[in-house]
């Protein structure tokens, strides 16, 4: 069933006819070649596919594309502005908060959504909020540190 869907993708207005049963992850990866959102489990368990919809982290592998009509989607590709890394991205680089990097886009976007809701989270709050994003390489310690640093930087004025 094809249906017209309009939404904002990384700041740009998009409008296209889509089979509404499709999942956002595959539309992003296939139709828009935005491959920063990853497939890790396809069932909502790992968070590798996390993107922001209206500022909320969602699992794009479970998010039917018809539900994005009229909404704003931000993927990892839309985070850096004019070649400047977002403070969360910077913090991940500074803390070496990644190894293979496959979980990284999902981690960053999940952290972003957390910081939008709660600009200065405690370590416990970060752990709670990141709990369902999986990383096999064990970068967890540094991811927590990176999110803490990013929170400080962002509330220090560079918040966008």
């Amino acid at each position: 069933m094809s249906k017209k869907v309009r939404f904002k993708l990384n700041g740009q207005l998009k409008s296209l006819a889509l089979d509404q049963t499709r999942m956002l992850l595959w539309v992003l990866r296939t139709d828009f070649a935005l491959t920063g959102s990853k497939y890790g489990c396809g069932e909502g368990f790992c968070g590798a596919c996390t993107v922001l919809v209206n500022g909320e982290a969602v699992r794009s592998c479970q998010y039917p594309v018809e539900d994005i009509d009229g909404k704003e989607v931000i993927t990892i590709e839309g985070l850096a502005k004019n070649g400047n890394l977002h403070p969360i991205q910077n913090a991940f680089v500074e803390h070496d908060a990644l190894q293979c990097g496959f979980c990284t886009p999902g981690m960053i976007l999940n952290a972003y959504s957390l910081l939008l809701k709660n600009p200065s989270p405690t370590q416990e709050e970060i752990i709670l909020e990141m709990e369902d994003n999986l990383c096999r390489c064990g970068a967890h310690v540094r991811i927590v540190q990176a999110v803490l640093t990013a929170a400080q930087k962002m509330s220090g004025g560079s918040r966008r």
Partner: peptide, 18 residues
């Protein structure tokens, strides 16, 4: 710091499926 991190935090890093 890792040489591959900027590519990996921006989603530019291409894995086989990308």
């Amino acid at each position: 710091l890792r040489l591959d991190s900027v590519e990996k935090v921006t989603g530019k890093a291409k894995f086989a499926g990308d």
